[in-house]
Design a protein around this nucleic acid. Structure first.
Lengths: 199, 199
DNA sequence: GTAATTAATGAGCAGTTACTCATTGTCAAT
DNA sequence: ATTGACAATGAGTAACTGCTCATTAATTAC
C-alpha cells in the first residue's frame, strides 16, 4: 500500500550525524551536510525529525540507550553486586573503545545547553537503573554506606574520562591501564580491603 | 601615536563568547551573534581573531589557563603533597561552582575534534605541571606507586564531573557532598589508611 | 595646526543555513 | 490497468553565515 522503505533510513541518519560531528565538530554541523553524508536528501531527514535540534537529541538518546543496554547486558551475566558493577564499568569503557565516535557524540551533547536533560523520562530511567545497581552493592555490604549518587560519581567519572580519551584519539590505552584505574576506584568505594572482583 | 583601545575588548569578546555558547549551545553559535552580545561590530572580532575557530580556541585556552592558575595558586598555600593536591582538587571544583559557564565552555571545547589538543604547547605544559604535583605525592609515599597518569584520571575525573554538574545547573550540590566525594577518591589513591588531609 | 597611525565600524559579499513543498517513485489492493 | 497511499526527492527560499574592506574616529608626534 505504500512505497517500501528502501534500507534503514533512521540508521543511516544516525550514522551520518555522528560521523559529521566527529568530522567537523559540533560548532559547524549542518543538516545539509548530514543529509549529503547519509546519501539522502534533506527532505528525508525532515521526514524523520522535526528540526535540527530534534535530530541531534534523537540521536543522542539513541546512543545513550545503546550504551545503557550494553551495560545492563554485561551486568546480567553476573549475580553478586560487585561483579555486576565491575562488568558494567568495563562495558562502558569498552563501548568507548569500540565506538569512539558514538561515545564522543554523547559526551558532546551531554554538555549542550539546548538538550534539556532532566526533563526527559527515558534519561531519568537510565539514571535510576544505574543507581539501583549501586544500591545493591551498598545493601549487601560490598560498598561503603554513603549516598548512591556520591558513589556513582566516583565510579563512573573515570570510566567516562577513559572512554573519552580514546574517543578523541589522543592516545592509545592499554588494558592494563584500564584495569589499574578500576582497581584504584574500587579501592575508594569498597567497604572491605579485599581486592576488586575479577570474575 | 594611535587611537587608544577603549575598554578591554578581548575581555568583552571572551565574555560574550562564553555566554553565547552557554545560551544557545555549541551547535548554533555564530560570530555575528557573539559580536552583537559583546556590543561590538563583527570587524572588531576579526581584528583580534583570525577566524571563528581561532576565536573559540583562544577563549578555550584562556579559560583553561585561568583554571590552571587558580589551582596552582591554591596549591602554593601548602607544603606537603597531600595538602597541595587536596587544595588543587577543591580549587577545580570551586571554579566550576563560581564560574559555571566558563567551566562548561571549556568542557564543551574539550570534546571538540577541531581543537587539536595534543599539538598545543601551552596545554602540554599545564598537563605536565599537574602530573608533577601528583609525582610529588608518589615520591613522598603519600600516594600508591602507580603511573601518575593513572592517578590523575582517578583524581581529576570526579572533580570535573562535579563541576560540570553544577555548570549544567541540573542540581545544586552541598559542600558535604563534595567533601565526601573527595574522601572516597583519596581513599582509592592514598597509600595509607589515614583519612585524607583536611588542612 | 596637521600629518601619521591605528582602533573600530558596519554595510556588503558570496556562500550556506534550516526548512518547505510540489513532484515523482513504488508498492498493494482493486 | 488503475487507483490510492505514502516514502522519498531535491530545487527553492528567506534568513543567516563567516569574513572583508573602504570608511570613520580617536589619538599622538611633530
Amino acid at each position: 500500500m505504500a512505497r517500501h522503505k528502501s534500507g534503514d533510513k533512521p540508521k543511516d541518519i544516525r550514522k551520518a550525524t555522528i560521523e559529521e560531528v566527529a568530522h567537523i565538530g559540533s560548532t559547524a554541523i549542518s543538516v545539509n551536510k548530514i543529509a549529503a553524508r547519509a546519501g539522502l536528501s534533506v527532505g528525508t531527514i525532515y521526514r524523520y525529525h522535526r528540526s535540527k535540534d530534534d535530530l541531534l537529541f534523537a540521536v543522542f538518546l539513541d546512543v545513550k540507550r545503546d550504551i545503557h543496554s550494553t551495560m545492563m547486558e554485561a551486568a546480567a551475566e553476573h549475580r553478586i553486586a560487585a561483579s555486576r558493577l565491575r562488568a558494567m564499568w568495563f562495558a562502558l569503557v569498552d563501548y568507548g573503545f569500540r565506538l569512539p565516535k558514538d561515545f564522543q557524540f554523547v559526551e558532546l551533547m551531554n554538555s549542550e545547553t539546548r538538550i534539556q536533560f532532566s526533563g526527559n523520562e527515558k534519561l531519568r530511567q537510565i539514571q535510576a537503573e544505574v543507581l539501583a545497581e549501586i544500591q545493591q552493592g551498598v545493601d549487601d555490604g560490598t560498598l561503603v554506606d554513603v549516598n548512591v549518587r556520591t558513589i556513582e560519581t566516583v565510579l563512573a567519572s573515570p570510566a567516562i574520562t577513559l572512554a573519552r580519551r580514546v574517543a578523541l584519539g589522543r592516545q592509545g590505552i592499554e588494558s592494563d591501564e584500564v584495569e589499574r584505574i578500576f582497581s584504584l576506584v574500587w579501592r575508594g568505594i569498597a567497604l572491605s580491603e579485599r581486592p576488586p572482583p575479577k570474575e
